[in-house]
Amino acid sequence: MPKVKTNRSAAKRFTKTGSGKFKRSKSGSNHFTGKKESNRIRNLRKSTLVSDADTPKIRKILPY
């Protein structure tokens, strides 16, 4: 059985935590930020976890 290749685009977007969950950055902070509240922009800088429904898909494309 050959080795499974890591999806490189996903590897740049997600990082695995110590407990095996996946961390991701929030969307919506690149442009059109002038109309958004500063409080909202500040919260978009924080990272969050991938939802439980999407975790199996991420685990499949990031096997290592």
Rank of each mutant, 00 (worst) to 15 (best):
K46A: 09
L49H: 03
S29P: 04
P2K: 13
K12L: 13
F14P: 02
M1D: 13
F22Q: 10
T15E: 08
P63L: 08
R13E: 00
T17D: 08
A11C: 09
G20C: 01
F32H: 15
F22L: 01
R24W: 05
M1Y: 10
K46I: 03
R8Y: 07
H31Y: 12
A53Y: 05
G28S: 06
N30Q: 15
N30C: 15
R45D: 05
F14E: 06
S51N: 09
E37C: 12
I61Y: 06
T17H: 06
A53N: 07
T6K: 12
T15I: 13
S29Y: 10
N39H: 15
K21C: 08
S51H: 09
P63Y: 05
R42A: 12
D54F: 07
T33R: 00
D52E: 14
D52G: 02
S47L: 00
N30A: 14
G28R: 07
K35Q: 14
R45G: 06
S38P: 00
R8A: 15
S51M: 10
L44T: 03
K26H: 02
T17L: 10
I58C: 06
Y64H: 10
I61S: 01
T6P: 04
F22V: 00
R13T: 12
K23I: 03
S27M: 10
K60L: 11
T6A: 06
V4A: 15
K46W: 10
Y64K: 04
K21L: 02
G18L: 01
T6C: 07
V50F: 02
T55I: 07
S27V: 12
K3P: 14
S25W: 13
S27L: 14
G34S: 11
S38F: 08
I61P: 02
S51I: 06
P63M: 03
K35Y: 07
H31R: 12
N43L: 14
V50D: 02
H31D: 01
S51V: 05
G28H: 07
P63S: 07
S19G: 13
P56T: 03
S19L: 07
L44G: 08
R45I: 00
P63H: 08
R42Y: 04
K35E: 11
T15F: 07
G18F: 01
K26A: 00
